[in-house]
C-alpha cells in the first residue's frame, strides 16, 4: 500500500512539473488581462476612426460654409473638398476592417485564457462518485469485484486534470504569442503612428470647426447691429463652441498609452510583465474608449 501511495505522489509531482513547464511561469490571468487590454484598445480605436470620419466631414462643411460667406463657391470647389471626404470614408472603412480582425484576435486570446476547460476537465475526470473515474471503477467492480483506480488516486485525478489543462492553455497562449510576436510588434508600432495621426488630425479639425462656428454662431450675431434674438440659444452655442476642443486635448494625453501596450507584449515575452501593469493598461484603455465615444458623439 505504501509503494502504491508513493507511485501516486510521484505521478502527481511529474504532472505538476509538466504543467509548470507548459505555462512558463505566466498565469492565465496575465494573458487574459493583456488580451482584455488589447480588446479594449481595438474598441477605442474603432470609435476613434468613426469620430475622425464624422469630425473631418463636419469640418469640411464648416470650411465650405465659411468660404461661401466671403465669396460664392463653384461646383469644382465643392468637389475638391468632397472628393477628399470620399477618400477618407474609404480609408476609414479599410482601417476598421483591420481593427475588427485585431479585435477578433484579442477576443479569442481572451476566450482561451479565460476558458473553463480546466474545470470541465476536472468534472469529466471526476472521482469515486462521479465522472470517468466512477464509471471505470463501476465497470471494474462488476468484472473483477474491485475498483481499478484506488480511492486516493481517484480523489487526486480530477484536480490534476484541472492543473494539466490549465498548463496546456498557458502553453498554447505562450506558443501563439511567440509565433506572432513580430506581427504584434509591427501592428502596435503602426497603431502608435495611427493614433498619433488621428489625434493630430482631430485636434486640427476641431480647431478649424471651433473657429468657423465661433464666427458664424457667436461673433457674427453678436456684432450685428440688431440684438441677439435668442439669448439662451446663443449662450448655449457659445459654451458648446468654446469647449469643443477639451476632449481632443484629453485624446492627446491618452493616445500615448498604446506604446505601453507594445511594451507590455515585449515584457510578456521576456517574463518581466506584472499583473499590476496589465491592470493599469486596462484602466488606460477604458479612458481612451470613453474619450473616443465622447468624440464620436
Amino acid at each position: 500500500m505504501r509503494t502504491h501511495t508513493r507511485k501516486i505522489i510521484t505521478l502527481v509531482i511529474i504532472l505538476a512539473i509538466i504543467s509548470i513547464g507548459f505555462g512558463c511561469g505566466k498565469s492565465q490571468k496575465e494573458y487574459a488581462n493583456l488580451a482584455q487590454a488589447g480588446t479594449l484598445y481595438a474598441a477605442a480605436i474603432d470609435n476613434l476612426l468613426i469620430a475622425t470620419q464624422k469630425i473631418s466631414i463636419d469640418t469640411n462643411s464648416e470650411r465650405l460654409l465659411q468660404d461661401d460667406a466671403l465669396a460664392n463657391r463653384t461646383l469644382a470647389d465643392y468637389n475638391g473638398i468632397s472628393d477628399e471626404d470620399k477618400k477618407l470614408i474609404k480609408t476609414i472603412q479599410q482601417l476598421r476592417q483591420h481593427v475588427a480582425l485585431l479585435s477578433r484576435y484579442f477576443g479569442l486570446l481572451y476566450e482561451l485564457a479565460t476558458s473553463d476547460a480546466p474545470k470541465r476537465a476536472q468534472d469529466a475526470i471526476g472521482d469515486n462518485s462521479k465522472g470517468l473515474i466512477a464509471e471505470i471503477n463501476n465497470v471494474s467492480t462488476q468484472l473483477q469485484g474491485s475498483g481499478l483506480i484506488p480511492a486516493n488516486f481517484a480523489a487526486a485525478a480530477g484536480p490534476i486534470g484541472n492543473f494539466v489543462v490549465a498548463g496546456i492553455i498557458r502553453k498554447e497562449l505562450r506558443n501563439e504569442l511567440d509565433l506572432r510576436k513580430d506581427t504584434i510588434q509591427k501592428e502596435l508600432l503602426l497603431q502608435e503612428k495611427l493614433l498619433e495621426v488621428l489625434s493630430t488630425r482631430i485636434t486640427h479639425d476641431l480647431t478649424i470647426t471651433q473657429e468657423a462656428r465661433e464666427l458664424r454662431l457667436v461673433i457674427k450675431p453678436l456684432i450685428d447691429v440688431s440684438p441677439i434674438s435668442n439669448p439662451e440659444g446663443w449662450s448655449t452655442a457659445r459654451r458648446t463652441v468654446l469647449t469643443l476642443q477639451l476632449t481632443a486635448d484629453e485624446l492627446g494625453i491618452a493616445s500615448t498609452n498604446v506604446k505601453k501596450l507594445r511594451e507590455a507584449f515585449e515584457d510578456l515575452a521576456s517574463g518581466k510583465l506584472t499583473l499590476a501593469r496589465v491592470n493599469a493598461l486596462i484602466t488606460d484603455f477604458q479612458t481612451l474608449l470613453t474619450i473616443a465615444e465622447k468624440l464620436k458623439g
Binding site: 483591420h98 501563439e176 506572432r180
Partner: peptide, 12 residues
C-alpha cells in the same frame, strides 16, 4: 496595417 491581415487571420 492591411499587409498584416494574413498573419492576424493565421493567429485567429
Amino acid at each position: 496595417l492591411t499587409a498584416l491581415d494574413g498573419d492576424l487571420k493565421a493567429g485567429i
